[in-house]
Structures are given as structure tokens and as C-alpha cells.
Amino acid sequence: MNKYSFNQISLKQYILIICEGQVGIGVLSLPRDLAKKAGTDGWIAIVLGWILSMLLSLVIIRIMEKNPEHTLFEILTKYFGKWAGKGLALLWILIAAYAASTIMFSTIHIVKIWIVQDVRNYILMILFTIPIYMITKQGIRVIGLCAELVFIATLWMLFY
């Protein structure tokens, strides 16, 4: 048993985390934003972005299978050296922070339009931030379990 065995997720949880992030940002707000910027040819960017993200996910899965005792940041340092690895880790963190903030702002925008028009943005931000903090402070394993719960809880929407 390695030192990170308690904080590991299954392949199913990894896929659900990615899919829920894509649905959260892609299905709800991406078509309108993309049509505004790219017009009717925007679907090409969506398909290419999906292919690129899937290939990158498969590469990450294969590398992590070969190095189960290391974290992603340790692997970056191992394969790319001390400085380039830390630079790539910083880039990864910045991209994740940008994606999280984009999802947060999009969610607040959608909830404000569809559900509660009279509530101020900062109140919605606080109401979303508290449970997100409580879940993420427990680690990636709880995030994976939450992704499974959200998937099961929203499965009925496919038939609606």
C-alpha cells in the first residue's frame, strides 16, 4: 500500500469528474458563447477540443498506471526535471483554477437567470463556496464520491 492509497480515485470516478465538469460548463453555456464568437463553424472547435481532452486524459491515465506511487506533480518533476516540472505543475494549477472559476461564474449566472433573479451574485458565491470548500478539503476521494452521487441523483434527467 502506497502513501497515497487513501486519496486515490477509481477510473469511474475520474471519468465522472471530467464528464460533470464538461456538462457543467459545456452543455449549459458553451453553445451560446461559441456561437457568439465563432458563428456556425464553432462545432469544429468543440469536436477538436473534445478529442484533445480525451487524448490527454488517456495519456494521464497511462502514466499514472505506470507510476502508482507518485502524484501528478511528482511525475512532472521526475520526467521533465526540477524547473520544467515545477513550471508545468504551476501551469496545471493555473489552468485548474481558471476552469474552476469559469465553472463557478457560469453556474452563478445560470442559477441567477433560471432560478433566483433577485439574489445578489456574492450571496450565491458564498452559498456555493461553503459546500465546495467542505467537500474539497476532504481530498480527491470525497470529490470522486460526490461525482458518483451527483451522477446517480441526476440520472433521471436523461428520461425527462
Rank of each mutant, 00 (worst) to 15 (best):
N2I: 08
Y4M: 04
N7I: 06
N7T: 09
I9R: 02
I9F: 09
Q13D: 11
Q13I: 05
Y14V: 07
L16N: 04
I17Y: 04
C19M: 12
E20K: 13
E20W: 14
E20G: 14
E20A: 08
Q22D: 04
G26T: 10
S29E: 10
L30C: 10
D33L: 15
K37L: 14
T40Q: 05
L52S: 15
S53E: 07
M54G: 12
L55M: 15
L56I: 15
L58P: 12
L58W: 12
R62Y: 06
I63V: 15
E65T: 13
E65I: 15
P68H: 10
H70N: 08
H70R: 11
T71Q: 06
L72C: 06
L72W: 01
F73R: 12
E74L: 10
I75G: 05
I75Y: 03
L76E: 09
K82I: 08
K82Y: 05
W83K: 14
G85V: 08
L88W: 00
A89H: 06
L90W: 06
W92A: 09
I95E: 01
A96L: 10
A97Y: 03
A99T: 02
A99Q: 04
A100K: 11
S101T: 13
S101V: 12
M104K: 07
F105A: 09
S106Y: 00
S106T: 10
S106L: 09
H109C: 00
K112C: 02
K112R: 14
I113G: 01
W114M: 12
V116D: 03
Q117E: 00
D118S: 03
Y122D: 11
L124M: 12
M125I: 12
M125L: 15
P131I: 03
Y133F: 15
Y133N: 05
I135M: 01
I135V: 12
T136E: 00
G139W: 02
I140L: 11
R141A: 09
C146A: 10
A147T: 00
E148C: 09
I152Q: 03
A153V: 04
A153H: 00
L158K: 07
L158V: 13
